[in-house]
Computed example of a mutant assay.
Amino acid sequence: MTGRAVIGATARFQAPAKLNLALRVVGRRADGYHLLESWMVFFPLYDELSVTVTDGGMSLTCDPPVTGSVEENLVWRAARLLAERYAVSCGARLELVKQIPHGAGLGGGSSDAALTLLALNRLWGLERSLAELIELGVRLGADVPFFLGGRSAWVGGIGERLMPFAEGLTGALVLVFPGAGVATGRVFQRLNGRFPVRAAPLGMPAAGEGWIGALENDLEAPALEIEPKIGAARAALEAAGARATLMSGSGSTVFGVFPDVAQAMEAVAGIGVNHTDWRVFSGGILNRHPFHAGWGDERDPDRGHPGSGGPR
Score class of each variant (00 low, 15 high):
residue 87 A to T: 11
residue 53 V to W: 06
residue 63 D to S: 15
residue 36 L to N: 07
residue 132 E to N: 10
residue 102 H to D: 13
residue 169 L to R: 05
residue 161 R to K: 15
residue 135 E to S: 15
residue 140 L to P: 00
residue 96 L to R: 07
residue 129 S to K: 11
residue 57 G to D: 14
residue 47 D to R: 00
residue 34 H to Y: 13
residue 167 E to G: 04
residue 121 N to P: 10
residue 52 T to V: 13
residue 83 A to P: 07
residue 103 G to F: 02
residue 166 A to S: 14
residue 135 E to P: 09
residue 110 S to R: 05
residue 53 V to C: 11
residue 120 L to V: 12
residue 44 P to N: 09
residue 45 L to M: 08
residue 150 G to L: 06
residue 87 A to C: 11
residue 153 A to P: 03
residue 81 L to Q: 12
residue 95 E to K: 12
residue 74 L to F: 08
residue 153 A to Y: 00
residue 152 S to I: 07
residue 47 D to A: 03
residue 77 R to K: 15
residue 176 V to N: 07
residue 102 H to S: 15
residue 154 W to L: 14
residue 154 W to S: 02
residue 54 T to E: 12
residue 97 V to H: 08
residue 64 P to N: 07
residue 88 V to P: 01
residue 101 P to L: 01
residue 160 E to G: 10
residue 37 E to G: 00
residue 164 P to L: 14
residue 56 G to F: 10
residue 175 L to K: 05
residue 76 W to Q: 12
residue 49 L to Q: 04
residue 81 L to D: 08
residue 41 V to N: 00
residue 77 R to C: 06
residue 77 R to V: 06
residue 160 E to P: 10
residue 128 R to M: 13
residue 46 Y to I: 01
residue 126 L to H: 01
residue 143 D to E: 13
residue 37 E to Y: 02
residue 47 D to K: 03
residue 155 V to C: 08
residue 103 G to W: 00
residue 172 A to L: 03
residue 144 V to G: 04
residue 53 V to A: 09
residue 149 G to A: 10
residue 35 L to V: 11
